[in-house]
Amino acid sequence: MAELLFWPAFLAYGEAAVAYAGDARRPGSMGRVATWGVRVGWLVQTALLIAQAARADGFPWDTWAGSLNLFVWLVVGAYLIWGCKPRFRLLGLVVMPLAALLLAVSYAAGGMDVSGTSRYSSLFLGLHVGLVLAGFAGLTLAAALAGLYLWQERELKRRSSTVLRFRAPSLVTLESLFARTVAFSLPVLTLGMAVGFARLRHGSQLDPLIVLTVLTWVVYGVFLLLRYGADWRGRRAAYATLAGFALVVAMQLTLQAGHFG
């Protein structure tokens, strides 16, 4: 059942990615088609996750591929909050191809299967993995917004004659949105990390993923301090958000090496 639901979700995300590309070339009805692709794809993926949860004995996404599946769902869900607005369609051009690609990777790596039983409880995994992934999803979206900010800023700086064609959000809006998204995501990540640390056994070794997570937390923490304490804005703030995201990507790759054991 879950495997069968992968294809419509993947096709809907793929359709949204193609439609967003069409909308960027010529803004119009393709944008609406893309938004519907995102909505339908997300609903189908929700059904997929429910089917997995119903079939699983414990927490169903405790493998790297499984967590990637959940991560994609969280990213697209967070995107849907703004994605329906025409001004944020350019963001879909970044988010949806990534979502389609990561969903396909998750499928190929067995993310639609139900894993065996873990030595950790479902409640612990649900809270720890769920919160950490929700935090990462928010930070991914913040990075996409920061990327869009840098693109828009460069277009305005070089006085491109086509700068008004794409109807992107304004610089001030983008800047405030990516900062607020980080400000919302970091506490979620902190909670997830706290749950993880609470279960860390005395004398356990810190694996590379834990080190990277702490490093990411520090980078985003410093960013928020500077942003809200020292009014640190503009291009520098966007670069800092992207630097933090590079660590999030590194963490996803490290997770593949095995964290839950």
């Binding site: 700068v163 008004l164 001030v172």
Partner: peptide, 8 residues
């Protein structure tokens, strides 16, 4: 319109 692109 360009000013709006900067400030919203």
């Amino acid at each position: 319109a360009l000013a709006q692109q900067v400030f919203g």
